[in-house]
Design a protein around this nucleic acid. Structure first.
Length: 686
DNA sequence: GCAAGGTC
């Protein structure tokens, strides 16, 4: 029996040992290797190492992230009744954590002391602490402190073990509880509201990370639905260069009225010349790309193949489990200095797909492999790199694509820079600026290995003899009327980048949290971009009314401040939790007090189907939603105001009010609510 | 069932 105490002592070969808890198997292995393990075995598949260091025997065993989680038996809300339970009991997807928990429990029973050697952050401090608290003795526990898992750092940490970092533990503990209290209670409130109005129970959710992300998507999508396109004109100009008709790029301010266009054309007709104002010849050096971290990999997989960040992450994890690449949940853009790149490259060369490229790289670098490491760092893991291991079976098409990206990025980071010759000519045509640019690749450098950028070469211009002050004859011109476009719609990747930029969520959770918004039915896919559903709009509207804190990234900032105070010993978790409870009680009571007019509020956002919303409410004449005032709902009211505001600009292009409205109905860039209002206004006239 | 955070 592998789990039996007697057989355990036999296998360990010692009675006096200190249990070292690592955050995950790979970390346990690294820690063990640094301490020269003399024995290794498995308990139910969980790898265990035994090492002697500084006169002590250490038994090193891994957790698998958090083995405990918060849970409650209460069904209503508000609930402040939580307890810590082993994850595998409450989460079907966490059943794999049981064997880790069992192994640690068994080892803890006989241990003389404990070392928490999880990642040095609040989560790692909590992961190790919970195991020692439940199965061991925190009075006999120490903390190993290292910022990377290099042998030197690990040895230093073990020669100099710290006291248990109880403040860090308390901060981690507090983070869990705050997220839980806010998330569970406000989610339940939303579900309750929904059920009261629609007589149907569905799963709804809100949280510190998901809700601001939803609100951000809604902001963009509403601004698109409220977009009124406005006309402007540019003039295409064609000149003759050595018998080739060349179009100049318009770089000046656009023309905003019909009379400006007419005057300008007159000038061109009178004197059809473009004057060369300046010529800038530039040698440009583009350094090789940085090694991949997870956000960069997700971003490139989306840019090149339109693979979603969530899918990319899962594929990268598969590749990691197949030992084809290093640990992918990393923010680092630096390859480990200890990595033997020559060995990896030689192994990669065995794959016929890369043998030629690797050979080229060896020649170019003369066997000296220096990566172009980037600025981003990660205390726990280096950048993503291929291990050189050959795939055991043929990779699935998407896996192949991600693997190929990682291999090529790895090759490219050692390669020479891309060298370009850029020529930029600025021309003046009657006071307006135009430009002409030419590009010539002098040396493709890393682009040979990572060919996912297109440099459109335009060598004609580079070779053409062009001088300042030259007058070039205009052969042709063309007026182009354009219309302003709304900002681009959000995509999974743009949401992910936004979360990164405002620093909410983590490498490991962001893509997943975006998927939650889809699973709840708040967001939906529309070709390659993201659209919001009426339900998504409703959630944002309700949160804004009843729990506004949850819509802003400020809540995360506030949490961070408070956790920092705990770490410095200047605040206590309990006080912070009590404070959070008070806010939640106020929010929930306030919401319950107003709940009798809930359906009225809900139908300001959602179009009523057959529901009874009472006779006293005024309905939007475009869509039937309940209005706040006047005869338009909150959505169509803004659209109407925007239409009125933009009319001046259209008048300058000779449009009457009704031709303006007709054009708005026709144009593709017109926002949805704007089009609906324009249609209504046209109908009213008839 | 509800969060966000670890990790297989």
């Amino acid at each position: 029996m592998p789990g039996d105490s007697n057989s355990l002592i036999n296998r360990l070969g010692v009675r006096d040992y200190i249990l070292v808890i690592a955050e995950k198997p790979r970390a346990a292995q690294k820690i063990a290797e640094a301490l020269y393990p003399y024995k290794r075995f498995r308990i139910n598949g969980v790898p265990i190492y035994v090492a002697r260091w500084g006169g002590s025997v250490y038994v090193i065993a891994p957790a698998a992230g958090h083995l405990f989680t918060l849970d409650t038996e209460d069904e209503g809300y508000p609930t402040f009744n939580f307890k810590w339970v082993p994850r595998y009991i409450v989460d079907r997807d966490a059943r794999f954590t049981k064997k880790f928990l069992d192994a640690l429990k068994l080892l803890a029973k006989h241990a003389q002391g404990f070392v928490n050697a999880c990642d040095y952050d609040i989560e790692g401090s909590l992961i190790g602490f919970m195991i020692i608290k439940y199965f061991g003795d925190i009075r006999k526990a120490k903390r190993a402190k290292f910022s990377s898992l290099t042998p030197q750092e690990v040895r230093k940490a073990f020669s100099n073990l710290n006291e248990l970092d109880l403040n860090m533990v308390e901060a981690g503990y507090c983070r869990h509880i705050l997220d839980w209290l806010w998330g569970i209670n406000i989610s339940r409130m939303l579900m309750d509201f929904y059920e009261r109005v629609f007589m149907k129970r569905i799963v709804l959710s809100a949280g510190r990370v998901q809700s601001p992300t939803l609100a951000h998507a809604v902001d963009i999508i509403l601004s698109r639905r409220w977009h009124v396109p406005v006309p402007y004109a540019t003039i295409d100009i064609f000149i003759d260069l050595d018998g080739n008709l060349v179009k100049l790029d318009y770089v000046g301010e656009p023309l905003t009225s019909l009379s400006d266009v007419k005057n300008y054309i007159e000038k061109i007709k009178r004197a059809p010349y473009a004057v060369v104002e300046s010529i800038k010849k530039e040698y440009k050096i583009v350094e090789s790309p940085h090694p991949f971290n997870l956000p960069d990999l997700q971003s490139e997989a989306y840019r090149i193949y339109k693979i979603s960040p969530y899918t990319t992450q899962h594929i990268a994890e598969d590749l990691y489990l197949e030992a084809l690449i290093s640990y992918p949940r990393t923010n680092s853009q630096k390859l480990p200095s200890t990595l033997n790149n020559q060995e990896v490259l030689e192994a990669l060369a065995k794959n016929p797909k890369y043998s030629e490229l690797v050979k080229k790289l060896f020649t170019e670098t003369k066997g000296f492999f220096k990566p172009n490491n980037g600025p981003a760092d990660d205390p726990a893991h280096p950048a993503i790199y291929p291990t050189g291991e050959a795939p055991r079976t043929r990779l699935k098409p998407l896996h192949e694509k991600i693997y190929d990206l990682i291999v090529r990025r790895y090759l490219a980071t050692f390669a020479k820079p891309l060298r370009l010759l850029e020529l930029k000519v600025t021309l003046n045509v009657h006071g307006l600026q135009y430009s002409l640019s030419g590009v010539k690749i002098l040396d493709p450098g890393w682009l040979k290995y990572y060919p996912f950028y297109s440099v459109s070469e335009n060598t004609n211009l580079v070779d053409y003899d062009i001088r300042e002050g030259m007058k070039l004859q205009i052969k042709n011109y063309k007026v182009r009327t354009k219309y302003t476009k709304p900002e681009p719609p959000p995509s999974r990747i743009s949401l992910l980048k936004w979360m990164e930029s405002v620093n909410i969520g983590t490498e490991a959770t962001r893509a997943e949290i975006i998927e939650v918004l889809f699973r709840r039915g708040y967001l939906k896919s529309r070709s390659r971009s993201v659209d919001v559903t009426d339900l998504g709009l409703l959630i944002v509207f309700l949160l804004k009314k009843f729990a506004e804190d949850l819509l802003s990234v400020e809540l995360t900032r506030r949490f961070e401040e408070k956790l920092k105070l705990i770490i410095y010993g200047k605040a206590r978790c309990n006080d912070i939790i009590e404070e959070a409870k008070k806010v939640l009680v106020i929010y929930i009571n306030n919401a319950l007090r107003e709940s009798h007019r809930l359906s009225e509020e809900v139908f300001k956002v959602i179009q009523p189907q057959n529901q009874d919303i009472g006779v006293s409410h005024k309905k939007c004449k475009v869509c039937g939603r309940v209005t706040e005032s006047g005869d338009l709902c909150i959505f169509h009211k803004v659209a109407y105001e925007n239409i009125v505001k933009s009319y001046e600009r259209w008048k300058a292009f000779g449009y009457s009010w009704s031709t303006y409205l007709q054009k708005l109905v026709k144009l593709r860039s017109t926002g949805q609510y704007v089009r609906e209002v324009a249609e209504m206004l046209l109908k009213e006239k008839v």
